[in-house]
Computed example of a mutant assay.
Amino acid sequence: MFQVRTPFNHRSFDALNATGVDLDVVSPTPFAPPLGPYSDYRHVPKTEQWGSYRVHYPRYLYMLPKKYFYHVSGNSAQKRVTSYVERTFETPHDVVQTCGFYLDGYASLEYCRKRDIPLVALSHAGDLKNFDRFNERVQSQIRETIDYCSAVLTVSDELADVARRFAPASKVTTLPIGEDPEKYPTDRREAIRRELGIAPETKLLLFVGRFEEEKGVRELVAALEALDRDDVAIAAVGHGGALRWWFLDQLGELSHPSHAYWELDPIAVRRLHVAADLLVLPSHFEARPTVIYEAMAAKTPVLASDVGGIPEMIVDGETGVLTPASDADQLREALEYLLDDTERLRTMGAAGHQRLLDQEWTWTHHAQRLSEIHREVIHE
Rank of each mutant, 00 (worst) to 15 (best):
D116F: 05
P181N: 02
L224K: 01
K203Y: 01
G20Q: 03
Y41T: 07
D14F: 00
P311T: 07
V25P: 03
R344E: 05
Q359N: 12
V155I: 01
H239C: 09
E219D: 02
E253L: 06
S305R: 03
D40M: 08
R271Y: 13
L272T: 13
E182D: 02
A295T: 03
S108Q: 12
S83K: 14
V269C: 06
A328E: 12
R59E: 01
G349I: 00
G126R: 01
H374R: 08
S255H: 14
Q139I: 07
D329V: 12
L248R: 10
A15G: 07
R288Q: 13
L61G: 11
V120M: 13
T82A: 14
E333L: 08
F69G: 07
I267M: 00
E182K: 12
H124R: 10
S73D: 15
N75H: 05
R229L: 14
R189S: 11
R355S: 04
Q78H: 12
L159D: 01
D228F: 14
K79F: 14
D231E: 15
D180H: 07
E182Q: 06
D187P: 00
R133C: 10
V280W: 13
I146E: 00
A350P: 02
F101N: 00
F134M: 04
D277Q: 05
N130W: 02
E286H: 05
R87N: 11
F101M: 01
D341K: 10
E201M: 07
T47W: 15
V85Y: 10
E312Y: 14
G349C: 10
D187K: 03
G352P: 02
R54P: 09
F101H: 07
F8E: 04
T347S: 03
R369V: 14
R87P: 00
E225N: 01
I310C: 09
Q78G: 14
P289N: 15
W50P: 07
I146S: 01
H365M: 13
D132L: 07
A32D: 01
S123T: 12
R165T: 05
L196A: 12
V152E: 04
V237H: 07
D231W: 01
E343P: 08
P7Y: 06
G209P: 13
L335P: 03
Q368R: 11
E190D: 11
I378S: 06
E312R: 11
V26D: 04
T6Q: 10
S156R: 10
S123V: 01
Y261G: 11
I146R: 03
T186C: 14
Y84C: 05
A275W: 05
F89M: 15
N75F: 06
E213F: 00
I142G: 14
P200T: 03
L128T: 14
D40R: 08
V377N: 09
L357D: 04
Y84Q: 07
C99R: 11
D341M: 14
E182M: 09
F89I: 00
G20H: 09
L159A: 00
Q49E: 06
D22I: 06
A297L: 05
P33L: 02
A268I: 04
T290N: 08
G197R: 06
A242M: 10
